[in-house]
């Protein structure tokens, strides 16, 4: 189906309920759907499982911890090894009030890709011989050992692109791509914020990063500045 354009990020979250699994695109400041995250905060949706590369590095996702909206976080970066000021997520994590599944960044991306591509899992050497292999099946094939990694899907994906047309074709900017294109494939409801929405035909088909088939809802928002605070 093609996309529907919504007036505000709050409207665009219509139907997102307590207990949902939500993928959130972005790599700290790059390509982060900050308006949609803040709308999710205003909405007060609870018991969420969030899937994102990072939380607590200056990203708006950390604000969902203010009212304890997260039950579980699946991420590659959430807890710092160094000291310094703790993020809200780190406070909750160290208090045992939120669950964390730490996933190597490439495995996270590929699990989401598998989820969106109808693939039942994949084999990787990443994580073998480490604590992150615990509970996962190991296989030996062709003399090489691998971990079996399972796909990830979500009820909702919140993503960001630079521009879209009304059908939902997306154009990304620079390193703002990161997890956005794979997450667009791996959720039942894909909501994208963009700086500009144009008419079909105005985007160069050669430049489309995510085709309209993947995107359900669009909302136009001016960018919010996000600064890394690692």
């Amino acid at each position: 189906m093609v996309a529907t354009v919504y007036e505000t990020p709050d409207d665009a979250l219509e139907g997102v309920g307590d207990g949902a699994t939500v993928m959130v695109g972005g790599f700290v400041s790059a390509g982060s759907p900050s308006h949609l995250i803040l709308a999710l905060k205003r909405r007060g949706t609870k018991d969420l499982t969030a899937i994102a590369n990072n939380i607590g590095l200056g990203d708006k996702l950390d604000e969902l911890c203010e009212q304890r909206q997260l039950r579980k976080m699946i991420a590659s970066f959430a807890i710092r090894a160094s000291g310094g000021r703790r993020s809200r997520f780190e406070e909750l994590y160290h208090a045992g009030e939120v669950e964390l599944e730490l996933v190597p960044q490439g495995t996270l991306a590929e699990r989401i890709r598998a989820g969106g591509a109808g693939i039942g899992g994949f084999l990787t050497r990443t994580g073998l011989g480490t604590p992150l292999a615990e509970g996962k099946q190991e296989l030996e094939l062709g003399g090489e050992r691998y971990l079996l990694e399972r796909p990830l899907r979500a009820d909702v994906a919140l993503i960001r692109a630079q521009r879209a047309d009304r059908l939902g074709n997306l154009v990304y900017r620079e390193a703002g791509r990161n997890f956005n294109p794979v997450m667009a494939t791996a959720a039942d409801l894909v909501i994208c914020e963009v700086e500009e929405i144009v008419e079909p035909g105005e985007l160069d088909p050669e430049r489309i990063g995510t085709p309209a088939a993947y995107v359900d809802r669009l909302v136009r928002c001016d960018p919010i500045e996000v600064r890394w605070s690692g």
Binding site: V28, G106, L108, A109, I112, E174, R177, N178, P181, W228
Partner: peptide, 27 residues
Amino acid sequence: DPDRINAGGQPVDLLPGASFFDSASSF
């Protein structure tokens, strides 16, 4: 520039011949 950072969040310059790609392609 929020979209032009390295993996440590530092702003970087692009050299001639640079390219961008998503996380699945990167890994």
